[in-house]
Design a protein around this nucleic acid. Structure first.
Length: 458
RNA sequence: GCCCCCAUCGUCUAGCGGCCUAGGACAUCGCCCUUUCAAGGCGACGGCGGGGAUUCGAAUUCCCCUGGGGGCACCA
């Protein structure tokens, strides 16, 4: 059996959307599960909308999620180039061959005529479809018009019959070929169309499994026909469902963050994103819910991917993020939270870092919540004299400082035992209550300052 | 308009003819723990879109309806 080769093929017209990220994830874990290869291909045939910056951000986001490609524009590989814009010569050869074998033909119809045709068909309740006016052109006529400098496209000639295939997720799917019009494979500007380029690439890159969104199911028929024309065995297809917004529609900015980059900036952990995305439309064979990439690779099978669309649920993502945040060591937590703290103008002393991180850990949903909770540990008050408060200086502590000093007079060690600390804390906390201080600003800092332990009952 | 797909708690889902008085998770609510806020523990609420058919038996199979989604480009 040949090795499994899958590809993730985004077009660099924007940043990595969560829907695409899920597609990439499914491809990645499916391939890894089979010991296969994960290829990244950049579909930039639309020069007008494709941008380098987007390609870079997509690559960066994939890397952040842990879905780095085995072959791709950055890492190379034996089946490159991996950008469609660099594969024109390959596409050209294919077009010539289809033309020579009668699977394709030149079309001189103007945009105006095509628009009118479509409008008319729609008005008559018919499916828009090219009427093959140029199919009957003689070779002489074609050459003559070409020589005269007339603009032409190349259309793929759709054969008669049925297109059937077995989808790994959806089962048997079939289309009648006559609902498909002779689509353009080469444009007048010399560019090549998506459906055509995809087939040339999947063929050339020896792709064995195409895992993509449901929005491509009808494209599959066209692509299958192209494979047939080339006499090449097509890959196996798997079309997963789409991600919907809570209102049932398409997920858009209106519903909040939609791209991986945005979630990263909001303080979500890649582990949580990966886990959440995996659970959207896929489920394990038992009732576990927590999966990191390696476990996913081990567990993932296509037969457990859902056919129906899934609504993106921020609450569940939040819960997962909290789970992963709580699983971090204080050291790791601090490292990941530091940028958010600095961004908010909070800089902690080295001695404070881990203990503060541990103290606020269970409060965090996202890393971005850190400043709100760490704030109480950053008062501008000089308590350096006290061995107990050397670590922390909270605004609340400031207000009960005298009382605290008194209570602490008998102790000399840096941190008190938990019981001693609790006793002092309760005395001081009672005073705080009298003064109407918010518990939030006093209890945690106090506990941490006195005992060096953020948890309630260690 | 035409073609294709989908349909279990609010949400993600388990279920592949009897194990289902439909299981889990998130969210919500309650209790416990706790002189803060969380986290955690325990519990509650809550669902097979409708109609036929097959069968001794249907959430599970078939058909129709309804609803939702996708596609029908010189975009990808």
């Amino acid at each position: 059996m040949s090795t499994v080769r899958v590809r993730f093929a985004p077009s660099p017209t924007g940043s990595l959307h969560i829907g695409s990220a899920r597609t990439a994830l499914f491809n990645f874990v499916f391939a890894r599960h089979q010991g296969g290869v994960f290829v990244l291909r950049i579909e930039d045939t639309d020069m007008k909308r494709s941008l380098q910056v987007h390609e870079h951000s997509i690559t960066r986001d994939l890397h952040w999620l842990g879905l780095s490609a085995d072959e791709g524009p950055d890492v190379g590989g034996a089946y490159g180039p991996y950008r469609q814009s660099e594969r024109a010569h390959i596409y050209e050869e294919g077009v010539l061959r289809l033309l020579a074998e009668g699977h394709a033909y030149r079309c001189f119809c103007s945009q105006e005529r095509l628009d009118a045709l479509k409008e008319d068909q729609l008005a008559r309740g018919r499916m828009p479809k090219y009427d093959r006016r140029c199919l009957g052109l003689t070779e002489e006529e074609v050459q003559q018009r070409l020589a005269a400098g007339e603009q032409a496209t190349v259309r793929f000639r759709i054969p008669q019959g049925q297109v059937d295939y077995q989808d790994m997720i959806r089962g048997r799917l079939s289309f009648s070929a006559d609902v498909i019009g002779d689509f353009i494979i080469k444009r007048t500007d010399g560019g090549f169309s998506y459906n055509y380029a995809v087939v040339m690439d999947d063929m050339g890159m020896k792709i064995t499994h195409v895992i993509r969104g449901e929005d491509h199911v009808t494209n599959t028929a066209r692509q299958l026909l192209l494979f047939q024309a080339f006499g090449v065995e097509p890959p196996t297809y798997a079309h997963h469902s789409m991600i919907h917004a809570p209102d049932g529609g398409k997920l858009s900015k209106r519903h909040g963050a939609t791209s991986i980059g945005e979630f990263r900036d909001l303080g979500y952990l890649p582990e949580a994103m990966v886990n959440y995305l995996a659970l959207l439309g896929w489920h394990p064979s038992d009732e576990r819910e927590l999966f990191r990439l390696p476990e996913l690779v081990q567990e993932f099978t296509m037969d457990r991917v859902s056919k129906s669309p899934a609504v993106f649920d921020r609450d569940k993502l939040n819960w997962l993020n909290g789970v992963y945040v709580r699983g971090l060591t204080p050291e790791d937590l601090y490292r990941r939270v530091e940028p958010f703290l600095l961004e908010a103008g909070i800089s902690l002393q080295p001695v404070q870092r881990e203990v503060v991180a541990a103290a606020i850990q269970s409060n965090l949903v996202t890393l971005d919540d850190a400043p709100e909770y760490a704030e109480v540990f950053t008062a501008e008050v000089d308590l350096a004299d006290s061995p107990h408060l050397g670590v922390l200086a909270a605004p609340g502590v400031d207000q009960v400082f005298e009382l605290l000093e008194e209570a602490l007079a008998q102790f000399t060690e840096e941190f008190l035992s938990v019981d001693e600390g609790r006793a002092v804390m309760h005395t001081v906390a009672a005073a705080c209550k009298e003064k109407g201080l918010k518990g939030k600003s006093i209890y945690m800092p106090l506990r941490v300052a006195l005992t060096g332990r953020p948890v309630n009952y260690p």
